[in-house]
Simulated assay, not measured.
Amino acid sequence: MPWRSASVLGVLGLLVWPAAPTAAVSGPYEPAPRPFGASCSVYVEGSRATAHCHNPYLDTDRVQLHVECERWWDVDADSAPVDLGPTGRATLAERCWKEIRSVRVSHLRR
């Protein structure tokens, strides 16, 4: 075999041969975090706020509706917290006397 053919075969052999691992994984294996958090749809109608929540995940999610009222004399309102287990559903509602400034739903892993 001529020397040029041998060198070409040697280069092709290096390209095809699997490479050895260059870096070892250090530290313990950490799995990806599990998905969490109920999905909530929030509706505001006048001075009333309603949230419909559904938890599609395995971990229990404690949801709570928070309503901030527009007027300084109107008391802000927080609903009672509800624990939603897997496939759980809940409807949360609160209101202000007059206008609503903002509405949010908080989530807590249980």
Rank of each mutant, 00 (worst) to 15 (best):
P31L: 06
R34Y: 09
L65F: 03
V11L: 15
E68Y: 12
R62M: 12
L58N: 13
P18W: 02
A80F: 07
E94D: 10
V82C: 01
S39T: 14
C96T: 02
L58G: 10
C53H: 02
S106I: 04
P33D: 04
T87H: 03
H107I: 07
T87M: 05
L58S: 13
G85N: 00
S26H: 15
R89N: 05
A23R: 15
R89A: 05
A90D: 02
V103D: 00
S7L: 15
T50G: 01
W73Q: 13
T22I: 13
W3P: 05
A24L: 15
C53Y: 05
G37V: 05
C96M: 00
A49I: 11
C69W: 00
R95C: 00
V8S: 06
L92A: 03
H52I: 11
A93Y: 02
C40S: 00
A38Q: 03
T22C: 10
A49S: 09
L84M: 02
S7K: 04
I100P: 02
L58Y: 13
P35C: 06
S79E: 09
D59S: 13
V16I: 14
L14D: 09
R71E: 07
W17R: 09
E94N: 10
P81R: 12
G88C: 03
S47Q: 09
R104W: 09
P33M: 12
